[in-house]
Nucleic acid binder design. Structure first.
Lengths: 155, 155
DNA sequence: CCTCTAATGTTCGATGTCGAACTTTATTAT
DNA sequence: ATAATAAAGTTCGACATCGAACATTAGAGG
């Protein structure tokens, strides 16, 4: 009468959930005062992929609903880290631009996060990490595709 | 003037964060009405590892702060899925027991979650998943140990 | 040209989580 | 014993996220 073991994919997702939680906590503590991880993610996204993007586009890229992104952008604007401007080509759109302060803050955040995460002896060699990345990317793509696919599934 | 690439461990944690988010959304939709993923996690924990555990102990195991667990347990009690009793051996403690309804609900939730996750073509073979699990468990242990270790770090 | 549908950004209400603080009880040190 | 320290569970206030709903604007079809 023992419990049947979880399917392997369950065990994997459980492990991933725990790691995510631990890493999130750790990263959040490392951030400059008042900066949430979700705020940093947006700054980082804009620095790396380019700013002048619409709110909805950023929301999709960062896997967050639009209302949450509205909130995040408002906080970033209030702190002067980002500047919103109406899209000249789309009357509904709002484009988000980085300010100098925003770029500087992102650089500081990256630095503090690196010094918070890097020294953790994670026990994984660089090649091991590389080896992990490929299958995990496949898993992400699969989940991502399934997301659009199944609003209502079943034949 | 290109951005220096992220350290590999960053890329890994980012990927993990995205997967966690996608999997969480998917799992949450699959759960029986009104049952949160955090609720299910507690039920599942008690079924698998045994009930009659204290609130604080469950909180630690599930990586959640005690106030959140108080909230979760109160919701589960209100739905009759769990029953709380004072610890006879520790006047502060509160032990959490599963009810029959709780076990049944957990079984239903497992079933619906399996039928929601299993059909996703995640593109990973069983041996591949196994190969992923070992290094990820090491990473988790490392982060877990670092959590206690560093309240304030520095030599 | 006009209507219908879809997308954008926002507000609202509900909910979950966290950190801080408090009360009560254990445990440890003196 | 007694005092100091720590742990358990709870409450509180702050905050982020979500889903639903709304006004506005684009775009597609007739």
């Amino acid at each position: 009468m023992t419990e049947p073991a979880d399917p392997p994919i369950f065990a994997l997702l459980t492990e991933i959930g725990i790691i995510e939680h631990l890493a999130r906590n750790r990263a959040e503590r490392a951030l400059p005062e008042g900066l949430r991880l979700s705020h940093f993610v947006v700054l980082n996204h804009l620095v790396r992929l380019g700013d002048g993007r619409s709110l909805a586009r950023i929301a999709r890229a960062v896997q967050v609903e639009r209302p949450a992104m509205t909130n995040t952008i408002q906080k970033l604007e209030a702190r002067g880290l980002v500047r919103g401007a109406p899209d000249p080509r789309d009357g509904r759109g709002k484009l988000v631009f980085l300010t100098e302060a925003g770029r500087a803050m992102r650089a500081r955040a990256v630095a503090t996060m690196e010094s918070a995460i890097a020294p953790v002896p994670h026990g994984l060699s660089a090649p091991e990490i590389e080896a992990l990345l490929a299958p995990l990317r496949r898993l992400r793509s699969a989940l991502d595709r399934a997301r659009d696919a199944d609003p209502d599934l079943q034949p």
